[in-house]
Nucleic acid binder design. Structure first.
Length: 652
RNA sequence: GCCGGCGUGGCGCAGUCUGGUAGCGCAAGCGAUUUGUAAUCGCUAGGUCGUCGGUUCGAAUCCGACCGCCGGCUCCA
């Protein structure tokens, strides 16, 4: 009689042959038995430590979502006989299932599939696990080519560490709900009814079988599933929030930038307001770089092929480059996809001594990359972008200190732009090919690691994720609604100094090879612009706001006074705007709100007479009876500190 | 690049299935109102319906190609 040890030190005795579920509380959807996730129907043969898994936990949600994927697949197979089904895992927030359907379907078919799914849930079919030999599995799935391929691929190691499915020649597990059967490791909910109604099909998209563009394109149906209706609603609400913040939408609404078809895919133009925000972003970055000991350089947008031959880009990056222009004499010219070779030429333009190092060359360098037409996306994935790119050339001895101060510099600057929730990711030497000796890699990686640890931030290891030419540390930032973005990267490069045969004279009089650090804070200015736009939902902090103070005259006779105030604010260094449209105050306020103007003043008889103003902020809060000089002072303070100051609008 | 969806005045959309005079709202311009913290009223102008080609007496509508946009393209039974 197996004895179950529950986490709260309760011992439960199970009669021989009883499933673990019998010993667990009602809310359980699965069980963790000696550390392995199991169905509630799993029958233990010996004493075991058992934990109930509910859909409130990550594990439980996974089980729920994976079961939802099976219900989806069953529904699709019911509605579309002759469907070949492939794989359907749980993913973040939901699930998907890939199908080869007898006909093309679009989003409009999802409602029908959803209805069928709900019928299956209502029928409350049990999920029944079976273990069969590989041979039998092949026979049972003889009409399902993807399943056959999966079974045949199961030779060798078991990727999931379960006890079924992996071992050579061993049994594989199947799950049946109703008439429908799938090859699956499980575990699953006890029955389809336990899925409940808190799911929604969200999307249909194409996806290559096994992600390989040489293999068939399948139809992938995405869904989201949650433990409760409230959770589902909250998730849908988050999606709406993300859509509300979408920089592509805000870019048009706030008149920041556009992508004219005439120019081409992935090529943006910044309008005056967006241009202003961008210029302020860049100016501040420039100032900080100047203070940080960077030298500013410029390089052209095109170059002869020879430069990218020497750098090696044409060998391994040609697909990402625009095709060459052939000029007279048969010379190929390329648009630059990267700035590094240019900065290297600046380094190499004269003999360098250790006294020149570290040499930090900075450029807002505009580069062009041939992104596949299907992946360009707003300002975050474009074909023409401006990198806040710098290359630092150091001696081996200086690297440690340089990296340390660099990371501090990076985080500090990002915080000034309003991002303050970070973690770091360290990418180490790739398995296959890599340049540089193992010692160099180990040392550089260790230096990066120590630098990261010193930051007191979470550090995630990305084993083998480095580029072949050096290890990398990247800063990941969470935005206002919790999404993470890869921001700055700091990359050591053992390769280019070799390829370009860079050297410097040491204090020993010998020639030495410098080490090169690539680093970008924004990555791409355009992408950073997009991230900030979404982070702030278009309501840029005062120092970045294109328009800082909106003045709304009540009637024509007040326009003069508003313009005087605007002149005073402008002279003080603020960016005011007078809305002199012949409209009602209500309409002007609404317009100011929609444009996310940080502060709005209504100018009428009372104000002209008293010289005191009612300040409305974009949150809708009103601060009455403020003297204009005090307001200007207050806004300048907010502008200068780059954050909402606590200082009040009242006179001191 | 591939799969699916889509492309109609500056923006958001209807009209496309079932071919027969291109419409609505916002924005814009003009006029009236001179207005007090999220939308005053009226009038006017603005579109070769993404582009090119085909079918047809006739194409926004049907067919094809191209351009562009949106979602997705190994979180792996």
């Amino acid at each position: 009689m197996p004895r179950l040890q529950l986490p709260d030190a309760v011992n439960v005795e199970l009669p021989e042959g009883e499933p673990v579920g019998a010993g667990l509380p009602k809310g359980a959807v699965a069980a963790r038995v000696d550390g392995i996730l199991r169905d509630l129907s799993y029958v233990p043969t010996a004493d075991a430590e058992v934990e109930a898994v509910t859909s409130a936990s990550e594990d439980g949600l996974q089980v729920l979502r994976h079961s939802a994927a099976h219900v989806l697949a069953q529904a699709v197979c019911d509605l579309y006989p002759r469907t070949a089904y492939a794989v359907g895992p749980a993913i973040e927030d939901g699930f998907y299932y890939d199908f080869d359907l007898p006909e093309a379907i679009g989003k409009s078919e999802l409602a029908k599939i959803d209805r069928r799914m709900r019928q299956i849930v209502k029928a409350n079919q049990p999920f029944v696990r079976e273990e069969v030999s590989r041979q039998e599995a092949l026979e049972r799935f003889s009409t399902q080519p993807f399943k056959v391929e999966i079974i045949q691929g199961l030779e060798g190691a078991d990727p999931a560490g379960g006890d079924v499915g992996g071992t050579e020649g061993g049994p594989v597990s199947l799950y049946r709900n109703g008439e429908w059967i799938d090859l699956c490791m499980g575990p699953h909910l006890p029955s389809t009814g336990k899925l409940g109604g808190a799911f929604k099909l969200t999307n249909v998209a194409g996806a290559y079988w096994r992600g390989d563009d040489a293999r068939p394109m399948l139809t992938r149906i995405y869904g989201t599933a949650w433990a409760s209706q409230e959770d589902l609603d909250a998730h849908l609400h988050r999606l709406e929030e993300a859509e509300r913040r979408d920089h592509r939408r805000l870019g048009a609404e706030l008149d920041l930038f556009s992508f004219p078809d005439e120019i081409g895919s992935g090529l943006a133009v910044f309008h005056p307001k967006g241009g202003l925000v961008r210029r302020i972003m860049e100016d501040y970055s420039r100032r900080r770089h100047e203070e940080g000991g960077y030298d500013f350089v410029y390089s052209p947008h095109i170059t002869k092929a020879a430069l990218f031959e020497e750098s090696g880009h044409l060998d391994w990056y040609a697909d990402g480059m625009f095709p060459p222009m052939q000029l007279d004499g048969g010379t190929d010219y390329y648009l630059k996809p990267m700035n590094c070779p240019f900065h290297i030429l600046i380094y190499r333009s004269r003999t360098r001594s250790y006294r020149d190092l570290p040499l930090r060359l900075f450029e807002f360098g505009t580069v062009y990359r041939y992104e596949l037409s299907g992946v360009v996306h707003g300002l975050t994935r474009v074909r023409g972008l401006t990198m806040d790119d710098a290359h630092i050339f150091t001696t081996k001895e200086q690297v440690r200190e340089e990296l340390g101060s660099l990371l501090v510099f990076v985080l500090d600057l990002l915080r000034d732009y309003g991002l303050d929730d970070f973690y770091l990711e360290l990418s180490t030497k790739p398995e296959e090919k890599a340049v540089g000796s193992d010692e160099d890699w180990a040392e550089a990686t260790e230096v990066l690691r120590q630098t990261a640890v010193a930051m007191d931030l979470d550090l995630v290891m990305d084993i083998g994720g480095g580029a072949f030419y050096g290890p990398k540390i990247s800063v990941q930032a969470r935005d206002a609604i919790g999404r993470t973005w890869q921001m700055s990267t700091i990359q050591l490069d053992f390769q280019l100094p070799q390829r370009f045969d860079l050297h410097y004279a040491g204090d020993d009089g010998e020639r030495h090879r410098p080490i090169m650090i690539h680093r970008a804070l924004f990555g791409s200015v355009e992408r950073f612009f997009a991230i900030l736009t979404e982070h702030y939902a278009g309501a840029f902090p005062l120092w970045l706001a294109p328009e800082q103070l909106r003045l709304a005259p009540v009637a024509d006779r007040h326009v003069g006074h508003a313009e005087e105030l605007a002149a005073r604010a402008g002279a003080a260094g603020l960016r005011p705007f007078v809305d002199d449209a012949k409209e009602t105050v209500g309409k002007k306020i609404r317009a100011a709100q929609l444009q996310k103007a940080p502060y709005t003043l209504v100018i009428g008889d009372r104000e002209v007479e008293s010289g005191r103003y009612n300040v409305r902020d974009r949150g809708g809060t009103e601060h009455p009876d403020v003297a204009f000089d005090r307001l200007v002072e207050r806004l300048l303070d907010e502008d200068r500190t780059r954050r909402l100051t606590q200082s009040s609008f009242e006179d001191a």
